[in-house]
Structures are given as structure tokens and as C-alpha cells.
Design a protein around this nucleic acid. Structure first.
Lengths: 190, 190
DNA sequence: CTGGCATGTCAACGGTCGTTGGCCTACATT
DNA sequence: AATGTAGGCCAACGACCGTTGACATGCCAG
């Protein structure tokens, strides 16, 4: 039962190499400046291969930006530590997954990227907030506040690279942001 | 003494029109997709005029993105309201000045834009934090935290346009963010 | 009136991009 | 071994970009 339904094709490695290169380029350069030619060069293949396997540039971006935030199930955790767990989790994800930076860089100047980002955050963060915030109807609301704080730190630390935000040790970032996220999730509406 | 040293030239109106169009385009499209041709079309002139007056595209961006956050002097204000005053001020600025959105959109995919943004926030927010945070040496530190929260909200509300972040009334945004900013500015280090 | 400078238009250059179609090669099946 | 097909390369197209230089027009000083 572990065997795939279809035999692995020889081109699978090429497709995967294209995706890896695409993620790096989108993360580093954003949508416009990440050219198909550069991505193909990184993957050591011809640009026309990208078209064959992904149709066009937007199809490539869609394929390269499948995102799973891998948010933990917070329901069973001690309610008071939700903030720090979430912040720590996002720092890890951001430092180990080019896709998140790519999504952020692309979403800012590309409507399709922005739409993808809205969907990811609404679904995945929304699902978490729905489980922990006092009034379930406010979940999207709370999710937006959390997203603003998390994305703001990702922006300053990993994209814009403000000196102080980059140099701040991981523990310190968590110590400062955790109470904020905690409050956005669980506090009574002010 | 109110007269300028040089007589106003007839081209001043054109130069200004170019800047207005450039700010709108950079704010709406980011650096790459904001083409000189489109900016010139908006300003009802020939693209070569842009080159004549601003040298090249980067020169145009530099001229179009002179930023003054107009941060109030907080020293004389009641220390406890600093957070809400700052948040309210930034919401106003962001809703009434294309340059801020332009800076954000450009800074994410353009190194020169990022550098400009780092300078603006370090100088202007840093100056404010230096006046109100308990340990002056921590001012850049605190400024980075404030910037992360403010930029995160600007990103979700004005650029990515997350539904809940857009629909949240202004007062509510202030009520939620003010305590956060207040804490980043004045709390003891956690 | 006339010359010179500021203002603006027009056409084109070289370059890069996304994208396409034809051609070659190597493997798997028969 | 023959052959069909998937995988891959190459050259080119048309579009658009930033940028340039030649040329027309208006304005003002002499």
C-alpha cells in the first residue's frame, strides 16, 4: 500500500529541482525579478522545461507556493503558553522554509500572491484562533491581529532586515511578542 | 524674504505631476511593475521627460519617496497615552500618504527601497523611542519592535487587505494595538 | 526682430522577458 | 533490434522595458 499508484517518472527529479530553484528565487527576488530563465539556470535545465511542466510563470508560482504552516493543535496545550508556542513555531518555520519568505515578497506586489496569502492565513491561523479565543465569532478578527504581529516581525527581521530586529536573539523576540499574541488570542475585547 | 531665490520655472508643474504619478504607481504596483512609460502617461508627458528631470528610474524613486513621518514630539505628552497617540498617528499617515504604501511595496523587492526604509524608521521612530523608553541604549531595540507591529498592521490592512483587518474599525485597531506599542516602548525588558 | 535656451515630442536602440515550436536523444516496450 | 514516446535542448518570436539622441516649438532677453 505504500507504493504509488503510478511508477515514478524520470522527470520527477527535474520537476522537483525546478520547484526548489523557484522557491529560492521567489523568496529572494519577488515575483517580477524572479525570472524563469534564472530559475531554469539554477535547476540546470532549459527554460522551456519550466513551461512544459508548469504551463506558465503563474502556474509555477502556484506549484511552488503550496504552504502548510504546520500549526500545532493548541487545544490540548496549557492555555497560558499559547502565545509563546505560536511565536516560537513561526520563527522556526520562517527560518527553515523559503516558501514563507517567497509568499511574503510575492504577495506584496502580486495580486495572486496576495490572494494565496489571505487564504493561507484565514484558514490555518483562523483554525487555531477558533479553538482558543473566548468568542468563536471573533476568531477571524483575532487571527488578523495575530497575523499583523507575526508578519510584521517576519517583515522587519527576514525581509527588510532592520538591524535591531535581525540582531535580537530568538529568545528575546519570543519574550517580547508572546504576551502580545497571547493577548490578541485570549484577552477580552478592550 | 518669502520669494524664492530662483524664479519659478514653467517646468515645475511638470516635475510635480511626474512625482504625483510616480508615487501612485509605485504605491499601487511596486518598483518593477511601475513603469516609466505608465508614469509618464499618467502625467500626460513623454517618458523622456522623466529621464531629463530625474536621470533614471532609481533617481525618480528617490525623489518620489522622500518621507517625513511627521511624528509628534512625545516628550511633553502624558506618558501613558504614547501608545494610542502613535498608533492613531500612523493610521492617519498611512491613509493619507501614498508614499508610505509605496515605500512598503518597493522596500520588499528592491534593496534601495529597503535601505531607505531602514533609514527612515531608524531615524524617525528611533528619535521618538529615545525620548520615552526607560533605558536610552535600548531605543533602537524598542523602535524595531514598534516598527514590527505598525508595519505588520499596515501590511495586512493596506497592502495584503486581509478581510478582517480591513473591516476592523479604526477605533478598534487603536484599542488593540495601543497597549502593545505602549509596552514595547515603556515596559521593563521581560 | 533675432538668437538662445528651456520645454516637449518622436523614433529608435539594445536588452530582457515569457513563451513557442522544431529537433535531437535516450529509454522502455515489444 | 525496431520503434514509439518521454525528456531535453536550441533558436526564435513578439512584447515591453529603460534609455538615448535628434528634432520641433515656445518663450524671453538683447
Amino acid at each position: 500500500m505504500t507504493k504509488p499508484a503510478t511508477a515514478p517518472r524520470r522527470s520527477d527529479a527535474t520537476k522537483a529541482a525546478i520547484l526548489v530553484a523557484a522557491r529560492e528565487r521567489f523568496a529572494a527576488d519577488g515575483y517580477e525579478r524572479a525570472t524563469i530563465r534564472a530559475i531554469a539556470r539554477d535547476a540546470n535545465i532549459d527554460p522551456s522545461m519550466v513551461m512544459r511542466y508548469y504551463g506558465n510563470k503563474e502556474g509555477l508560482f502556484v506549484a511552488a507556493s503550496a504552504i502548510d504552516l504546520r500549526l500545532p493543535q493548541l487545544g490540548a496545550l496549557p492555555g497560558k503558553h499559547v502565545g509563546s508556542v505560536l511565536v516560537a513555531h513561526f520563527l522556526d518555520r520562517w527560518e527553515n522554509d523559503d516558501v514563507l519568505t517567497a509568499m511574503l515578497r510575492v504577495g506584496v506586489t502580486n495580486e495572486a500572491g496576495a490572494e494565496r496569502m489571505r487564504a493561507v492565513f484565514a484558514e490555518q491561523i483562523g483554525a487555531v484562533t477558533a479553538g482558543v479565543c473566548p468568542v468563536p465569532a471573533e476568531a477571524p478578527h483575532r487571527a488578523a491581529l495575530v497575523a499583523a504581529q507575526i508578519l510584521g516581525m517576519a517583515l522587519t527581521r527576514y525581509v527588510l532586515r532592520f538591524g535591531p530586529a535581525v540582531e535580537m536573539p530568538r529568545d528575546e523576540v519570543i519574550a517580547w511578542l508572546a504576551p502580545t499574541v497571547q493577548r490578541y488570542l485570549t484577552a477580552e475585547t478592550p
